[in-house]
């Protein structure tokens, strides 16, 4: 019935993780960096669902459930921090936010 194995899903997940990592390393806009982190979490979700399906076990899917919840909480807090940052410094570009740089 199915010709697609687990390898293809893991390849897609790892390339997606790679793209998210490149986004975190390359971009300057804090919101886009945040979106890239979401992409990486999404890649992990995809890998977990694939492993869960092909191992015939429910545990991976439950983990995806938890990861989604944590990601939602993280996004709410992170965006609140970004809004606060913008109120205080009038910028959210990471190359202008270097007060901790010494």
């Amino acid at each position: 019935m199915v010709l697609i194995g687990i390898n293809e899903f893991i390849y897609v997940a790892s390339i997606l993780f790679l793209i998210g990592l490149l986004g975190v390393l390359l971009r300057r806009n804090t919101i886009v960096i945040f979106m890239s982190i979401e992409l990486m979490l999404n890649a992990i979700n995809l890998a977990l669902v694939a492993f869960s399906r092909f191992n015939n076990s429910m545990d991976g899917s439950i983990f995806v459930f938890f990861i989604m919840t944590v990601a939602a909480a993280e996004v709410a807090l992170g965006l609140a921090i970004i809004v606060m940052l913008y109120r205080q410094r009038q910028t959210i570009l990471v190359n202008e936010l270097k007060q901790l740089n010494g």
């Binding site: 390393l25 390359l26 971009r27 300057r28 806009n29 919101i31 945040f34 979106m35 979401e38 999404n42 989604m68 990601a71 939602a72 996004v75 709410a76 965006l79 970004i82 809004v83 913008y86 910028t91 959210i92 570009l93 990471v94 190359n95 202008e96």
Partner: peptide, 28 residues
């Protein structure tokens, strides 16, 4: 959760802050 709630939050913050004006080139 993702495509609904989280991305609506992202779009809301992007349009609230108007963050594009400073990024004249993309990469670090």
């Amino acid at each position: 959760v993702y495509a609904g709630a989280v991305m609506v939050l992202f779009l809301f913050i992007i349009m609230l802050l108007d963050v594009d004006k400073g990024e004249n080139f993309n990469f670090k």
